[in-house]
């Protein structure tokens, strides 16, 4: 919303969500909440969606609804797959011109290294988890229904979104700091990660919406996927330590656990935790995530969408921490 109001001020914005807009918005958002029309409803209900589309008379739908990581599988199916299907069906019936779908870079991740991947990478045979699997199914359906003379569709695959509103990446790192576990480094810190500031992701959506609606560029983006990152691959621990440093914490030494040893400890601690019915700190999943390469080549988004990440990683970290402190107070 913020990016639309900044980059395309004459666009009328309507929001469809299960939850109403928050009463107070953070100072990081500069748009006027009064300019936004809210439509409450359930994404799996075609009637709710049709009402919202009719009410808004929209040209383009940006579909970013998705459950948090860690939700039960049926929620993923329901929102990601069924919700998207229902939305496509309603949009087609109401003659909406374009759909921008927020997919995820995770659709090509299966736990193995993803090094310098671009849009030509195929889906893995086995997905990392139910979330990514349902995102891939939804993405495929969005692309398959693309109709340049009817509902034209485009998918964006952001990687590692963080920023104000973030409930996972930076809060997770702050959690490690709180637990005083910052000294432990798992893996060799040669692995690069893409982190993407949420405002940049939003900008990419505005660009995609503009390009898909404009007749001169519609055919370049319709039916396409675009990876979206900050174009600044960062070493995993370098980023973590930068976040901790911003909170005033610097370790004078580190304890490096090689990947294989950390995996071993992870399996044991998971076992012990399951016996004690507690949550394990170091799980094999976390070890794999901390040791994997996951970075992408976003040449396509830069060339075709004209995308350029405006907020750098370090600015993004500052904004996120500020926002967390603000929302805590």
């Amino acid at each position: 919303m913020n990016s639309f109001s900044r980059r395309s001020p004459n666009t009328k914005i309507h929001v469809f969500d299960v939850r109403p807009l928050p009463e107070k918005i953070s100072k990081y958002f500069t748009f006027d909440p009064k300019s936004v029309t809210f439509h409450g409803g359930d994404i799996t209900s075609e009637d709710d969606l049709s009402d919202a589309i009719k009410g808004s008379k929209c040209d383009v739908i940006v579909h970013s609804a998705s459950p948090m990581h860690g939700a039960p599988q049926q929620i993923y199916n329901k929102v990601n797959v069924e919700g998207t299907r229902t939305l496509i069906s309603a949009a087609k019936k109401q003659n909406v011109k374009a759909l921008v779908y927020t997919s995820s870079a995770g659709v090509i991740f299966n736990g193995q290294d993803v090094m310098n991947a671009d849009e030509s990478w195929p889906y893995p045979e086995v997905h990392m988890d139910g979330y990514n699997e349902t995102k891939a199914i939804a993405e495929t359906e969005v692309l398959e229904c693309n109709d340049i003379d009817g509902l034209a569709t485009v998918c964006l695959r952001p990687a590692g979104i963080f920023g104000p509103g973030d409930r996972q990446l930076i809060p997770g790192l702050r959690g490690v700091l709180k637990m005083k576990q910052t000294k432990f480094q798992v893996g060799d810190n040669n692995n690069l990660f893409d982190w993407t500031y949420v405002g940049n992701v939003a900008d990419a959506h505005v660009l995609a919406a503009q390009k898909i609606l404009s007749s001169s560029t519609r055919s370049q983006v319709a039916g396409e996927v675009f990876l979206i990152t900050n174009d600044q691959p960062t070493y995993f621990w370098t980023l973590a330590r930068t976040v901790w440093k911003a909170d005033g914490h610097v370790d004078n030494y580190n304890i490096v656990l090689p990947r294989t040893i950390a995996l071993g400890i992870g399996y044991i601690s998971e076992l012990v935790a399951s016996i004690l019915k507690k949550e394990a700190g170091l799980t094999p999943f976390r070890v794999k995530v901390a040791c994997a390469h996951r970075y992408h080549n976003i040449l396509k988004a830069k060339e075709v969408l004209g995308y350029k990440p405006e907020v750098s990683i370090d600015e993004g970290i500052r904004y996120t921490l500020d926002w967390m402190d603000e929302s805590r107070n």
């Binding site: 090094m115 310098n116 810190n189 040669n190 690069l192 600044q232 691959p233 960062t234 070493y235 370098t238 980023l239 330590r241 930068t242 901790w244 440093k245 610097v250 370790d251 970075y295 080549n297 990683i313 370090d314």
Partner: peptide
Amino acid sequence: NHKSRVNDPNYLQIGLKCGELEQLCES
């Protein structure tokens, strides 16, 4: 990258530069 120290005000920038160049080498 491995020699960089967190205290250094240029810590993140050095890391980002190394990352950018590693990506080029990988390409």
